[in-house]
Design a protein around this nucleic acid. Structure first.
Lengths: 230, 230
DNA sequence: CCAAAAGTGTTGCGGATACACCCATGG
DNA sequence: CCATGGGTGTATCCGCAACACTTTTGG
């Protein structure tokens, strides 16, 4: 029984111009020449997949810009790539909207709707988007998309872009503050050219993943409307 | 850069005697001789990991007994097993409480609390238990632990065993029926020797995984208290 | 008639949404 | 003083949990 190769792949997402984008590079060689592939590469002998994906990303984008990375799963269809059998461990990565890391010449931020993806990488991007959407609603994952400090309306635009549906600024603010996810910095942002009341500036209280709405039902007795369990 | 081996491992759980059990086999050879390992094995050249885990399980337990299988993730610490570098894809499997499949002589159902697990398999079992607990509260995953037909109090005992805390039969019934997860068969179960009102018999409406409590908050506008989106 | 087990009615709480209303700024 | 954008107050809805109460059986 032959050994298989193992690669790690990262769907690194960010929001720009009101839409989700994914980091990809254009293949210069066959197979799938001209199509766009996710960053990644072979798993090294002395690293686990988490270490490996961080190492590989460091070659494409400054690691300090990546706010969050998590495993999505294994993609292992024997025909997923031509040539040597290769199993992939896929990751979701998130870069804040205000970070604009330098990327290599063959690499670009592309809309999620693009179809000319290499191999099965379109499946991985779809899984990444679904994971992001799900976790935005029951964790503090917004911290990984947002700048350090922001106004509620700016945050609202990020949630709209990520979730793909309307979000009320009023309720977004209330939900996130009630859960202790957001806190005001005390500063005010100057109004735009059209005027208007200056917006309060907020930040996320944590910048690591936290589940804020643990399980909806069947909580242990006595935990009535308590929400998260730390 | 050397190729790595790839194995699949399954933490197959069921409930017996009011507690969760995991299927494991006792190693007869070094390394980790005498310790208990999860069923699994090498990934074949012509199969993906999902196919592989089902094939490997068929050798330990009748496949028709396994009601649900899903991927947990990749375990890839370079030192996780001695010898050739081996990456594992771990799965959660569930067997209904009334199925009692024949298992090989070296294989047994063991309590989750057992410590004499081989390699990093204890980590995998813990991940499986956590996944089960989480999904019980926002999906219909109970179908994979329960018999075809059951009373609410029998189902309650399963939930207690899986979740590890008290569950009210009253609220369990209401939550699951409101969500359309359970339906009465119309039959009644005879009371026990001590008497009592005969219990209504229920079944799960679906026997495949369905998310019933999609996202707690930030629903699309107009979806007020609608819960799941099909 | 009593104990035991199952099931229903009812109350209260709290999170989430929606919407009306008030606030602060630029022109 | 008006348009614009930001923020708060408040009503309503609804799921869930808790608990009292009724129903149906065996002894």
């Amino acid at each position: 029984m032959g050994a298989t190769d193992h690669e790690v792949l990262a769907a690194v997402l960010r929001i720009a111009d009101g839409a989700l984008q994914v980091l990809a590079w254009q293949r210069a060689l066959e197979p799938d020449r001209g199509r766009w592939a996710l960053p990644g590469g072979r798993l090294g002998a002395d690293e686990d997949v988490e270490t490996s994906v961080l190492r590989q990303l460091a070659e494409k984008v400054d690691l300090r810009e990546v706010a969050h990375v998590e495993q999505l799963g294994v993609f292992s269809d024997p025909a997923r790539v031509p040539g040597t059998r290769t199993v992939a461990t896929a990751f979701l990565g998130l870069v804040p909207t205000d970070a604009d890391p330098a990327v290599p010449a063959d690499t670009a931020w592309r809309p999620l709707s693009a179809r000319d993806t290499a191999f099965d990488h379109g499946l991985i991007v779809a899984a990444a988007r679904d994971r992001l959407r799900a976790k935005l609603s029951y964790t503090n994952l917004g911290f990984a998309m947002a700048p350090r400090e922001f106004t509620i309306s700016a945050l609202r635009e990020l949630y709209v872009a990520a979730l793909g549906h309307a979000v009320s600024a009023t309720n977004l603010q209330r939900v996130l503050t009630r859960r202790g996810v957001l806190e005001p910095t005390g500063a005010l942002a100057p109004p735009g050219p059209a005027g208007g009341r200056p917006a309060a500036v907020f930040r996320f209280t944590d910048r690591t993943l936290r589940v804020t709405d643990a399980f909806a039902v069947l909580k242990p007795p006595g935990e009535h409307g308590r929400g998260a369990v730390p």
